[in-house]
């Protein structure tokens, strides 16, 4: 178990190094930051001064080594846009994004898992068809569009909730709902199909033949088996929430990592964009590591080998 976690952690670090390198190269290839940041009428001297200030006049290899060496010390450079430390710029956005994604994740589990279980238990019934119709609807609307629909309905039309900003908890309701509904639909669909698959296994028929009560069949016999593939899906959902932040946060002008990343890439603020991609990658790596560990904990076939 310890060996397994160490091996996975080592792999996670490799992924991070690879990402740093890739992001560094891709962002450098995507255009000259001096030209993006400064106006077209800037004098060549000013351009050269800008490049010298940020080390952009050195070779790309030198820039890369400097970047990695500094990043290891927690120094991700200075934002091109406002001259503040990238570390500060990015870290003050992290709690904002978590304030949306963590409640949304919990909510999508609280809605999606029971809905999927109920649909699977009453397979082919009106309940099942109703739940699944709702899930398909929730799943097929792109989440940024759903966000706009919510703004129109609750902020513009009903005027009960604010449409943008993050000053009070009420501002979080619409973005969290947007996130949660989409992901609850995905969780419900997968929970249903996984549970139906497990309920069709011979050991469930055998347990029923033994007279095990239905509630115990679901809770003790079926769900522990369904949990194994579910963990993988929930990993995707958690990762999707962070990726979705890039789409959903700007809709609500929510000052989290998603909005920050969109701003940084559109203004060519390389140090900030770079640090954010690295942070997203680190989140994904942590999520995957958690999934791997939970998988081993839940699945005796892997645990005992």
């Amino acid at each position: 178990m310890v060996g397994f976690i160490l091996a996975r952690t080592f792999r996670a670090i490799l992924v991070l190094i690879f990402t740093v390198t890739l992001v560094f190269i891709v962002l450098r290839l995507s255009g000259d930051p001096a030209q993006q940041m400064l106006s077209d009428s800037t004098s060549p001297e000013a351009l050269a001064a800008f490049n010298a200030k940020w080390g952009l006049d050195r070779s790309i290899f030198e820039q890369y080594l400097f970047y990695v060496a500094n990043a290891l010390r927690g120094d991700f450079g200075i934002s091109f846009a406002d001259g503040r430390e990238v570390f500060t710029v990015v870290s003050e956005r992290i709690p904002k994004t978590f304030a949306l994604t963590v409640p949304a994740f919990i909510l999508s589990l609280l809605i999606g898992i029971p809905a999927g279980i109920i649909a699977a238990m009453h397979r082919e019934s009106a309940v099942d068809k109703g739940v699944m119709a709702g899930a398909v609807l929730g799943y097929s609307i792109p989440n940024f569009l759903l966000g706009l629909v919510f703004i129109f309905a609750f902020a513009v039309w009903l005027r009960v909730l604010p449409s943008s900003g993050s000053s009070t908890w009420r501002h979080a309701i619409l973005p969290v709902a947007t996130f949660a509904l989409y992901n609850a639909a995905a969780v419900a669909r997968f929970m249903r199909s996984t549970l139906i698959d497990v309920l069709g296994q011979p050991y469930i028929a055998a347990a029923r033949a033994d007279g095990v009560p239905n509630i115990e069949i679901i809770l003790r016999h079926a769900l522990p088996n369904a949990a194994i593939p579910m963990v993988t899906t929930l990993g995707f959902v958690a990762g999707g929430l962070l990726g979705g932040a890039v789409l959903v946060e700007p809709v609500f002008a929510w000052p989290g990592l998603g909005t920050g990343f969109v701003n940084a890439t559109s203004t060519g603020d390389l140090p900030v964009a770079q640090a954010m991609v690295l942070l997203f990658t680190a989140f994904m790596v942590v999520i995957n590591l958690t999934v791997d560990v939970l998988y081993v904990v839940l699945n005796p076939k892997i645990r005992k080998q």
Binding site: Q201, P202, Y203, I204, A205, A206, A207, A209, R220, H221, P224, N225, I228, L298, N299, P300, K301
Partner: peptide
């Protein structure tokens, strides 16, 4: 009581 053709798949793998 009943026993089945394929005993391994008739036993719950997580218990």
């Amino acid at each position: 009581a009943m026993i089945f053709q394929d005993p391994t798949s008739s036993l719950n793998p997580v218990h």
